[in-house]
Simulated scan of single mutants.
Amino acid sequence: MIEIKLPFWLSGEQLTRLTRAARRYWERVEHWLRWPLRQIDAETCALGVLDLLAWQRNITRFTGEPEHLYRLRVKYAYANAVDAGSVAGVKRIFQRLGVGYLEVEERTPGRDWDVITLRVTDGQLAQNAKLLSIIIGKYGRTCRRYQFEVITPLTAGVALTEFNNTWTTDVATL
Rank of each mutant, 00 (worst) to 15 (best):
L69V: 08
I40P: 04
V115A: 00
L131M: 15
Q124P: 07
Y101E: 12
L125V: 01
Y78N: 04
Y76L: 02
Q124F: 00
T142Y: 03
T117H: 07
Q95S: 15
G98Y: 01
G123R: 01
I134R: 11
L132W: 08
G110A: 13
G100H: 00
A77E: 09
A54R: 01
R73T: 02
Y70Q: 03
R71K: 04
D122A: 09
C45P: 02
T142I: 04
V150C: 04
S86C: 11
L37C: 07
A88V: 15
Q56W: 09
A88P: 07
A81S: 10
R145E: 08
R71G: 01
K91F: 02
I40C: 07
L125G: 00
E105R: 09
G85E: 08
A77Y: 06
T44A: 03
P109D: 13
G98F: 01
K130N: 12
G98R: 07
G140H: 14
L72H: 03
E103W: 08
R107F: 06
T142K: 08
A46E: 11
C143E: 14
T161F: 12
G157V: 13
E162M: 15
P66C: 01
V150F: 03
D83H: 15
I116V: 12
P36N: 05
G98A: 08
Y76N: 03
V99G: 14
N80H: 06
V104R: 12
E162T: 11
R111F: 06
S133Y: 11
N128V: 10
E162R: 14
I40W: 14
A126I: 03
Q39M: 15
F62N: 03
A88G: 14
N128K: 10
G64E: 12
P153C: 07
T152Y: 00
L125P: 00
A54K: 04
T117V: 11
A79D: 15
Y78T: 06
T108R: 08
T155F: 13
L53H: 02
T44C: 05
N58H: 12
A81T: 09
P36C: 05
I151P: 03
N58Y: 07
V82S: 08
I135E: 00
Q39F: 10
E149A: 14
V158M: 14
Q124C: 09
V74K: 02
A159T: 09
E149D: 13
L50Y: 06
R61K: 11
L97E: 12
I93S: 01
A42N: 02
R96Y: 09
R145W: 08
N128Q: 14
V87F: 05
S133A: 10
L154Y: 10
V104K: 12
W55A: 15
L160N: 05
E105G: 03
T63Q: 13
K130V: 14
A156P: 06
Y70P: 03
R96F: 05
C45R: 01
R38F: 05
F148A: 02
R145Y: 12
L47Q: 04
A54C: 07
S133D: 11
L97S: 04
C45Q: 03
P153V: 06
R73C: 00
Q95H: 15
A54N: 03
D114G: 09
K75Q: 10
R141N: 13
I134C: 05
I59Y: 14
C45G: 00
A129F: 04
A156H: 13
Q95T: 15
D51C: 13
V82Y: 09
T142P: 00
G48A: 05
K138Q: 13
S86N: 13
L125D: 00
Y139K: 12
V115C: 00
P66S: 05
D83L: 15
